[in-house]
């Protein structure tokens, strides 16, 4: 079982966390025209990188949303930043 450091609560068991999204995706401005391809990319395309990844997670008990950098091969956690501070 992995240990994830919640920016608010500190290291906790992975069972308390919920994966939200890959980081770095910006919602298209839907008040203007958004092409099918751009919308599909926003909704469905995933990089699913092997190695270093940046992801958005939520710590369910405290509801903190944060960006976590980790290695998807070695499972090493490289760091977490509160979402409001990461701005991603």
């Amino acid at each position: 079982m992995q240990l994830f450091p919640c920016p608010f609560c500190g290291p906790r068991d992975e069972r308390e966390f919920h994966f939200a999204a890959e980081a770095g995706k910006t919602r298209p401005d839907t008040t203007g025209a958004v092409s099918e391809a751009d919308w599909a990319a926003y909704l469905y395309d995933r990089r699913n990188d092997k190695g270093r990844v940046r992801e958005v997670w939520m710590h369910l008990p405290c509801r903190e949303v944060f960006v976590m950098e980790r290695d998807s091969v070695s499972m090493e956690v490289l760091g977490t930043t509160a979402f409001r501070k990461a701005g991603a």
Binding site: H18, A20, M58, L60, R63, E64, V65, F83, R84
Partner: peptide, 10 residues
């Protein structure tokens, strides 16, 4: 509630 929180912090 979780959905609202996610959008709130985003």
């Amino acid at each position: 509630e979780a959905m609202l929180e996610s959008w709130r912090q985003d």
